[in-house]
Amino acid sequence: MVDEQKMLLNVKNLKQYFPIKGGILGRTVNYVKAVDDVSFTVYEGETVSIVGESGCGKSTTGRAILRLDEPTSGNVEFDGADLLSLNKKEMNRMRKHLQIIFQDPYASINPRHTVRQILTEAMEIQNVWPKEKRDEKVIELLETVGLGAHQADRFPHEFSGGQRQRIGIARALSVNPKLIIADEAVSALDVSIQAQVLNLLKKLQRELNLTYLFISHDLGVVRHISDRIIVMYLGKIVEIADKKSLFENPKHPYTKALLSAIPSTDVDNKKERILLKGDVPSPIDPPKGCRFHTRCPFATELCRTEVPELRSSSDTTSDHQVACHHAEAIESGSLQPVVSS
């Protein structure tokens, strides 16, 4: 299915290092390697999710693609254009096609502007509709996201969290984007509202042929909305697969542990919880070799010295890629976890 589709976003070797300044002279003493050599592709019309625990670099990846923070190095190709080589003006014009929905609906819209002002300003910036049609378009957008025309002249504080998130979505839609990066877009909402907003996003995708890069830590949400899933750990991609393959047949020990943390409602079918020991190491000085080796029950000497490449394993399709030296051995049972007491 994926092969026939057009490549919309192609991220290659993206790195985002944040310098740590120290000393009286403010010299750079070290770097936080928030995103370290990440490559993936998003095809037109699909929803790709990036999951991982906090601090794994998933939001940073999203922000780097949009150049909200300038990436340290790498390549971001969007619809045939190399985003990182564009100058500020060209990039601003390009932003029409890439939009973002933020996590916190209370912080992401200017409290001093009415909904109409917010949406009109977005259209004005990108000059997407003729002036006299913008008012009409505002109403249309509000109705698209499930708000009423009578709410156009209200201020953000008069809306609930879910409604505000809809305003955020309307603002992102107002410039007719092709790709929307949803950065924890539903994490701040109540579960019932989450479902409404997710369904809205799905509906919009069908109607407007949108492509989503969905960043979340919530596996339930990710399972609901994604076509393909990228699992990140400490600034690196550990596994990429389509939803079904990942949930049914996770390859990487980290993914397995992550999936085992989803609570099960089925009493008869008790899953084994894989408990990881220790904490996520600091991204300032990440472990050598495989970054997960400090917590991995299968870790061997090889894992401690050599960085595993992202590759497709023998028993999966080429779309299922994993960054683990021992994916096959773990699968076949020839490598047993080291149980420490």
Binding site: R63, L66, L68, M91, N92, R93, M94, R95, K96, L98, Q99, I100, F102, Q103, D104, A107, S108, I109, N110, E121, A122, I125, Q126, G168, R171, V175
Partner: peptide, 17 residues
């Protein structure tokens, strides 16, 4: 640092705006 400033930047607003 507020997110809505990031949102404006993502929309391509000029620094002056």
């Amino acid at each position: 640092k507020l997110e809505y400033i990031d949102a404006m930047r993502a929309l391509g607003a000029s620094d002056r705006r």
